[in-house]
Design a protein around this nucleic acid. Structure first.
Lengths: 204, 204
DNA sequence: TCCAAATCTTGCGTGCACGCAATATTGCCT
DNA sequence: AGGCAATATTGCGTGCACGCAAGATTTGGA
């Protein structure tokens, strides 16, 4: 199923996003024209727009590329206890390993537009997470709703983390893993309940 | 707090969105220029863009205007049992009363761009819902997360409802109230748990 | 009443998103 | 291999979003 076509598309996508990231790091996000990104990736500007509909999207993708799939895979591979599986998968995948992307993350936290785009990128978790959850919870909208709830929690954690919060004296910011766990905690009962009752859903 | 300035802004906003809706109904959404909306509302095109950043946003706002505040108010007024309060508030406020907006909703379900924008408008629930929930659940991110989860569930219900689902033989669509209840159901345990443990949050 | 600060409106300019139709590339079948 | 259908790329054109700075309007204070 992974023909040449598909691989080429992924390659182009990756090339575009990496070009976008590199240029943004070099010149600052405001000084990157769409044409520059396209040229650096060796495609036409119009093609760039077939893959991304904003600079921010392209830049952020360089960092988040594949993360959603990895979260879903980790959940699928986990034994039992949906709630724990989800929490651990998210924390693991969002806590970057060696990080050559540290530079990129600094850039992202610096620019408001990029911060927004980064937080929003958590939405990409929904489709793959929905698939995995659908294997373990009742039919109906449950899987989609829980996946969306998790994605929203991640988004909120990312917002808190990237925020420059200069409000008063209280700086609420913490480490990303802690913020993620705190944001996911309120959803644990929902995940547990859904798994416990694998078919108590379609009530009129 | 409601000075002349504030009232004028709301008036302009409403005028713009109603102009946008009326023009869209008359000519079809694709045949409405931004300049037309601005002219119909008696402001400059640039001012239109100070209020809305897309036609879809403006049109949808004419229908959703004030709904978020009403949901929040209903939850605040409800006695006990957060989960039920939220579900009932949402169902009530999204089940339009007399509906002169029936025409508008038909338009929205017809155009893909408008459907997307309408579903996305559920996000506007987050801030007011967060405020109400913060009065009844632990500090920390819990209120925000639950509000976002509810908003996401509503979004999913709206998507299901507005979808033209012509897939095979199965038409999954149901009545909006049913879809909303089904989408909110998986979150009930989370709401209940949060209310039951009004301070078991800020762990380690 | 009058003034100064804050806020809103507007015009202009720039870069961009995206529909459309022509062209090139890839996949599959014989 | 060869050709046909499916899909990707590209250029062009149009309408739009939004920063910026100047002019108008509202607000609160003296």
């Amino acid at each position: 199923m992974t023909g040449l076509r598909e691989r080429k598309k992924q390659a182009t996508r990756t090339a575009l996003s990496e070009a976008a990231l590199q240029l943004a790091v070099e010149r600052g996000p405001e000084n990157v024209r769409v044409d520059d990104i396209a040229e650096a990736a060796g495609v036409s500007p119009r093609t760039y727009n077939n893959y991304f509909s904003s600079r921010e999207e392209a830049i952020v993708f360089a960092v988040t590329n594949g993360r959603e799939s990895r979260v879903a895979a980790a959940v699928r591979a986990a034994p039992d206890g949906l709630a724990d599986a989800v929490v651990e998968a998210v924390v693991t995948q969002y806590t970057e390993p060696g990080e050559d992307a540290r530079e990129a993350l600094l850039l992202i936290t610096t620019s408001p537009a990029l911060r927004t785009a980064y937080a929003h990128s958590a939405t990409a978790l929904e489709p793959p997470l929905t698939s995995v959850l659908a294997e373990r919870v009742p039919d109906g909208p449950t899987a989609r709703v829980l996946a969306a709830a998790v994605a929203a929690a991640v988004r909120i954690a990312l917002e808190q983390w990237a925020q420059p919060v200069t409000s008063g004296l209280v700086v609420v910011s913490g480490s990303l893993p802690d913020l993620l766990r705190a944001a996911l905690a309120p959803l644990v009962p929902a995940l547990t309940a859904a798994q416990a009752r694998p078919e108590a859903d379609s009530g009129s």
